[in-house]
Design a protein around this nucleic acid. Structure first.
Lengths: 238, 238
DNA sequence: ATAAAAAAATGATAAATATCATATTTTATG
DNA sequence: CATAAAATATGATATTTATCATTTTTTTAT
């Protein structure tokens, strides 16, 4: 049965693909997508697998059909900073491609993923001939920049407790919850620490405190937010 | 004499303006710049004056002919986070304009500035009809995003001492030095603190330490880097 | 199913940083 | 030029956070 699905997925044409509706490719007319479909390659990857690494020269962009991944940067101290999370529907690699530079981030799957690779030239051609597409790409970069600026302010102005509360709310918002109300993403304590910029032990300790105080429930790596109002208050330090 | 300069500035035509060579407008043909020139407005502002504020709906972009400014974001705790510095030659406001949203940052002059206002429609028209221009704008957003990501990693992974050393080197690199070798920008200790994300007192204390240890010279607000190799080492914690 | 490895948890302690208080110096303003 | 206001400087102390050590739990691989 799974095999059956896989075949359907592998042979899906881009112009019929619903996932592109949520990214910049949504404005591309069907006939252009038919062309892209001829060049695209579909891939299936597992948790922990790297889509591309900092320093790599990309030959195209990746459209995430399914799953979640983290974008990281290696700090001089050897620690990994999670700069952003990306979920199905989004594109990655367009930044490097359009600024004609190597990748400045590493993209790693957080769970099983289906992704499509679209060659560089197809994207550049579209960018030049379709100003709706270039505007969409620009908007998405502008949004990323806004979020990055907010992150800078959060990192700089908030303490670890505030940042953890903020991140938990953020994770629930962007990843949603499962049937039992747990945040629908699996992150190790170390990954959470790498996202908020603190020591793993501090993250573990604070999560335990939040649990003890009844703001969250912890079941292994699964986290459920029990008192979002309180967590929201915590993000601002009270 | 100053008045004379001012008149020359006020009547300068965009197509003859050299400053645009360093920003995305450099790819715009002369005839289009003549058109823009008819709509542009030149302004002179003083230190502390605000070009636009967080939440404002922009009617165009600003091209910085002269001077330096800071881009800030107000944190929930009431503190101001400096997210970026911008110098002559660069554009501001294009992010808000192209993503069709309000300004998410406040832009404040750090010294006397000459700036030109270019109306929204001119920029949007250029973006649509000239793919070289849209590519340049995209590249510049991509660069900003890269720098923002680096900032996130620095904020998250480095301690205050390391961030201060890093910022001092950064200030010298982007603002240059004056005739006597001092960094060519005037920042209060509070502004430096707001850039690196720490308490003003901590910044003052660390600057004094750096001075005592001979890495820098302090003369009022003026800062001179005396041992850049050592400062570079400090950025990585040793 | 079990051993080995990895992750999580927790305590003790050290180090970094913020906060508060106050003095001094510099800058701005009438 | 005098005075007020702002900025800088510095000490004392409290708080936050990192680091190191160790144990327990969970996950992975055979």
């Amino acid at each position: 049965m799974y095999f059956c699905f896989k075949i359907i997925f592998m042979t899906l044409n881009c112009e019929k693909c619903l996932i592109r509706e949520v990214n910049s490719l949504s404005v591309i007319p069907s006939e252009d997508m038919v062309n892209i479909s001829k060049h695209k390659k579909s891939l299936h990857i597992k948790r922990g697998e790297v889509i591309f690494s900092e320093g790599a020269s990309l030959k195209g962009v990746y459209c995430l059909r399914n799953g979640k991944c983290k974008l990281t940067k290696l700090a001089p101290n050897g620690k990994e900073q999670i700069v952003r999370f990306i979920s199905k529907g989004e594109l990655v690699g367009h930044r490097s491609l359009l600024s004609n530079s190597v990748a400045h981030l590493t993209v790693t799957a957080l769970e099983e993923m289906d992704i499509c690779f679209i060659p560089k030239q197809d994207i550049l051609d579209l960018f030049k001939k379709n100003s709706d597409f270039s505007l969409e790409i620009t908007k998405s970069l502008a949004e990323d920049l806004d979020e990055a600026n907010s992150s800078i302010a959060n990192m700089a102005q908030k303490n670890v407790r505030e940042r953890l509360a903020e991140s938990l709310l953020f994770f629930e918002r962007i990843f949603g919850v499962d049937a039992e109300g747990f945040i629908a993403v699996t992150l190790t304590r170390e990954e959470i620490a790498n996202a908020i910029g603190t020591a793993t032990e501090s993250t573990i300790r604070l999560l335990s405190e939040f649990k003890k105080e009844g703001y969250i429930t912890l079941t292994g790596k699964r986290i459920k937010l029990e008192d979002k109002v309180k967590l929201q208050h915590l993000t601002e330090g009270y």
